[in-house]
Amino acid sequence: MSSDVHTHDPAHDHRHGHAHPPHAEAPERLSYYQVMEIAVRELLIAKSVFAAEDVRRAVEAMDARDPAQGARVVARAWTDPAFRARLLADGTAAVRELGYEMATFRLLVVENTAKLHNLIVCTLCSCYPRMLLGLPPDWYKSRAYRSRAVREPRAVLKEFGTVLGDDVELRVHDSTADMRYLVLPERPAGTEGWSEERLAALVGRDCMIGVTRCHV
C-alpha cells in the first residue's frame, strides 16, 4: 500500500497512558512490524510449523511468569538455610524444587551481604532470568542502562535511590552468555519471625536485579 506504513514513531507501540473508549471509531493502523508479525505467524501456522493454539499457550505461559516467582525463591532462601545453600550452589536445580525451569540456561544466584552488593546488566542485548522474573522492564534494555551500568554503576544505583557506602564492594555481572543471574537481596532488619509469604511480599523485581535493596 502506501509508503507511510514504513514510518515509525518509536513511542507509538508503548501502551498509551489513557484508556480507549469501549467503542473507538477507528482502530489504530497496524505498524509495518505488526503486519510482519501477523504474516510470519499465519504463514508458519499454514505450513504446520506450529498451531495457533501453540502461540496462545506460549503467550499464556509468558503471562504466568512474573517477579512473584523470584520473590518466592528469595523468601524461601531467607527462611530455609539448607535451601539457601542449595540455591547458591546450584540455582538451576534449587529453583526446580519450587517448580521453575530455566530451559536451556543456568541460573546463578549471587548473594548481597553487608559488604557486597551485586548488580546485573546485559551490555550486549537484554539477557534476563525471564523464566523466573518474566519479561524485563524497558529500562533494563535501554542504551543508558546497558552503557553505564558497567562503567559508573554507583551513579546508576543512585538514580534508583540506592546509595552504597565505600566499605561495600559493588560487583557488576555482565550477563553475556549462558548464565542467568538472580540477586538474593539482604533480608531486611525487623522481619524476624515473619512467614515466607509475608517476606515474599517485600521482594520486588528491582532488588532481584540489584538496582535497589529490599526494605520493610
Binding site: R171, A177, M179
Partner: peptide, 29 residues
C-alpha cells in the same frame, strides 16, 4: 569452556569513581 572472569573496575576505567574493591564479572569463552 565458559568462564566467569573477574576484573577490577579501576583497572578497566582510569576515571572509575568508586572504591578500589569494586569489581565486574563477565562470562567469557
Amino acid at each position: 569452556p565458559l568462564y566467569r572472569v573477574r576484573f577490577r573496575q579501576r583497572e578497566l576505567w582510569p576515571d572509575y569513581a568508586g572504591p578500589a574493591a569494586d569489581t565486574i564479572e563477565v562470562e567469557i569463552y
